[in-house]
Design a protein around this nucleic acid. Sequence first.
DNA 1: TAAATAGATTTGCAGTGCAAACTATTATTC
DNA 2: GAATAATAGTTTGCACTGCAAATCTATTTA
Lengths: 108, 108
Amino acid sequence: MGSVFEEMAGLDRLIHEPSRLAILTALSTCQRADFVFLQRITGLTGGNLSSQISKLADAGLVSVEKKIIAKRSNTLVQITPRGQEAIEQHWQQLEQLRKSAQEWKPKS
Amino acid sequence: MGSVFEEMAGLDRLIHEPSRLAILTALSTCQRADFVFLQRITGLTGGNLSSQISKLADAGLVSVEKKIIAKRSNTLVQITPRGQEAIEQHWQQLEQLRKSAQEWKPKS
DNA sequence: TAAATAGATTTGCAGTGCAAACTATTATTC
DNA sequence: GAATAATAGTTTGCACTGCAAATCTATTTA
């Protein structure tokens, strides 16, 4: 019980979902980025980006800070330690799963 | 335009979704497997597995063959050449995206 | 023959992604 | 200086999706 594929099927969708995977991965190299910048590099629509950030924030993977800069509202998104940990772990898990899958043989 | 993260956000959900990623990856090493075996190794419920297989079959990534073996119905699922190509490509793409993301720097 | 088991599909619904619509503020044009 | 457009972001609405419960068919057991 608990095969590679069982683990694969159970991957955390909150992180695995493409748009959030992109946001978190970007932030893991950036550490912080503002809303507009994230929108530019991910190509997501504003509405979509906004709701994905909310979900990540609800889960404590990113933190959000709103300011006014040059008379413009400015939303800064930062990855939290938990978020950093989670995204790094997710990529490692994917690599590990892929490797295990390649080595896998039936009837184990 | 067309940054790493844009590509990441655009990953093909049909393949990327955890349960289907598990099914396709398993089949890519097995080549063929029957319904019950797939259910065992992925840990998916029968209903879930059935609908995921249908989606993969609709997309031409797997083919399904139904027989009666030892007076029991038996559903054999095979990965198609297109499916094999797609899953291999997906894993390569993930690896490539991760690498590119690590090397990535703003203002490119 | 009634009940249980096996193999698989269909149904129902909660949850999700996402674009359109909306709000609020600042800048520009006439 | 009113109207219009642009900027920054959120909310709404809905089509889609994953998934377990319910269902169906065929076989085996009591």
